[in-house]
């Protein structure tokens, strides 16, 4: 027991600086943000009044003054779900392509480093130039191929805007999960595949019967990470590409938090909305952990 205490003192003396950083610059602001969300603000100035949960209630009930919460919740979910699916599908595909050991494999593997290393906002700037309605290269390609006669707006097209953001988002976020999938695939012994081939299993059968089950823990990790990312990391893209438009087609929660706080200067309501966003994130992660936890599945089976 005494040794344990001694170790504790030693361990804490080592990690204390790190904990201090995290406490002062992450947890303290978080606690402070809860206090802000209980306050009233007018034109960016605190009214000095504690309104408790009125900011939260306003978000859910006052559609006119706190506009678009449900709408943007829907947009956010739509984006998150499609982004997670797209990233998982594409990165798994690329990981499988890399595993094939073709001439293109090494190319694929290392070219992914580029989008991985480029800062998110800079990639938004790059895509903004590509999507440009008047001189963008995407328009140029379509024009050259004869698919369009005149340059058209892409991020202003209500049907395309969200997908344009998604396309740029996937570009930036595919590499990390591809590498994770690659590493996961590498842990599956070749003998398993050979055995399956002996049994005459086709490519698809092998994929669903062997690859996917063996990748379960990796898949869980990727899903959790991608969901966390997709819920907020699109902010830079929305900021640069669409500013929430056209109409409210790309007004996600993260963007609405920004608008509430810094355009409408309602810091209380903006912060309340950010807390809701964080809660949504927690819910998502909890669901994944429960649904996909392999240990728990085994436990359940054992129990039966």
């Amino acid at each position: 027991m005494k040794r344990y205490t001694k170790t504790s003192i030693f361990a804490y003396s080592i990690i204390l600086p790190s904990l201090l950083f995290i406490f002062i610059f992450l947890l303290f602001p978080l606690l402070y943000s809860i206090s802000i969300s209980f306050r009233g603000y007018k034109y960016g100035v605190p009214t000095g009044e504690i309104v408790w949960f009125r900011n939260f209630v306003d978000i859910f009930t006052k559609e006119t003054v706190a506009p678009g919460f449900y709408e943007s919740l829907l947009v956010t979910l739509k984006f998150t779900v499609s982004a997670v699916i797209a990233v998982v599908v594409i990165s798994l595909t690329i990981a499988l392509l890399i595993k094939e050991r073709c001439i293109t494999s090494t190319w694929l593997k290392y070219s992914l480093l580029l989008p991985y290393a480029i800062p998110g906002v800079i990639s938004a700037v790059v895509w903004n130039w590509i999507y440009d309605a008047n001189f963008g290269v995407l328009n140029g390609v379509l024009f050259k191929l004869g698919l369009i006669k005149d340059y058209v707006g892409i991020t202003s097209n209500p049907g395309l805007a969200l997908w344009a953001i998604l396309f740029a988002y996937v570009w930036k976020f595919v590499p990390a999960s591809t590498y994770i999938f690659s590493a996961g695939l590498a842990t599956i012994p070749d003998s398993v595949y050979e055995a399956a081939q002996m049994d005459g299993a086709g490519t698809f059968r092998t994929f669903f019967k062997i690859t996917i089950p063996s990748l379960m823990p990796v898949l869980q990790l990727v899903l959790v990470m991608q969901t966390i990312f997709a819920l907020v990391m699109h902010f830079g893209l929305v900021f640069v590409l669409t500013q929430g438009g056209p109409g409210s087609r790309t007004r996600t929660l993260a963007w609405l938090v920004y608008m509430e706080s810094f355009t409408y200067t309602r810091f209380g309501r903006g912060t309340a909305m950010a807390i809701i966003l964080a809660l949504i994130m927690v819910v998502f992660i909890y669901v994944y952990l429960v649904l996909l936890n392999p240990e728990r599945q085994i436990e359940r089976k054992g129990g039966r």
């Binding site: 995290i22 992450l26 947890l27 602001p29 978080l30 402070y32 943000s33 802000i36 966390i228 819920l231 907020v232 902010f235 993260a254 938090v257 920004y258 706080s261 810091f267 903006g270 912060t271 950010a274 807390i275 966003l277 964080a278 994130m281 927690v282 992660i285």
Partner: peptide, 12 residues
């Protein structure tokens, strides 16, 4: 703390 969206603590 990694899960905290930065937009939620930027105001405080």
């Amino acid at each position: 703390t990694r899960l905290l969206p930065s937009i939620s603590i930027v105001i405080p």
